[in-house]
Amino acid sequence: MAGDEWQGKLDIYLDGELPADQMRALDDHLRGCPACAAVVLNRVQLKREVQAAGKRYAPTAEFRRKIEKSIATRPRRTFHWGWAAAAALVVILFAGALFVSREQQRLQREHIYSELADLHVSTLASSAPVDVVSSDRHTVKPWFQGRIPFTFNLPEPKDDFSLVGGRMVYLGQTPGAQLIYQVRKHQITVFIFQERALGGRLHGATSVIRKLSFNMETWSQDGLRYFVVGDAAPEDIRKLSESLKSAAKS
């Protein structure tokens, strides 16, 4: 095949797109045709020049990040699922934190109730359960003056209730008043503390509790926290509580 015939195929040859048989034939031709070999050499050089010159523009890192971000955030439903999962996690964590907080609060209350029940029992078991022995509220109340940092009102004993006496008591580091009442054969303890001294551990608690077979009622009134504890019937506990509430108002 003459050189002129090959000239038009040189680029295709260099692009590696000639059929195999033609590639071999052109290889053979180039070995014996200096003119075509020179053209091939020149075109190879031009290909290389274009290849090198073509690598001219590079994207900025900022633009790359922008595209990566646009691709990553494109599947919106997936994105929303991600947010939904995150929101669910926040709700779970919040609910969990709330549960833990409430559980801690509940445990603190339980601890206080247990301690008060213990105090009630230990007082009754003592040979000298009270420091001031008097059925007269006007004797008992003044006895606490200077001993505890607050004062309180006591009800006039009525029905089957009678005041036995009182003593100072500590709940943790908090000083308070312990009063013993008797109703029929049962003895009931009334504890009075400053609400704020309890560190908010019973904040807002108003409840009737049954602890170790003792009945207990607690409430907060005028900055004081009252507990009424005893093995008497819940009705008796409630009656004494009501009379204490009434006295506090007067």
Partner: peptide
């Protein structure tokens, strides 16, 4: 299932398309 397919598509697309980013930009600039 469609959500899963979208996620797979997006991941596959990124794997295929990002390696061509520099070349595509160069070509676009030309």
């Amino acid at each position: 299932m469609e959500v899963f397919k979208d996620r797979v598509d997006a991941a596959t697309f990124e794997e295929l398309a990002m390696p061509l980013f520099d070349q595509l930009y160069n070509f676009a600039h030309w």
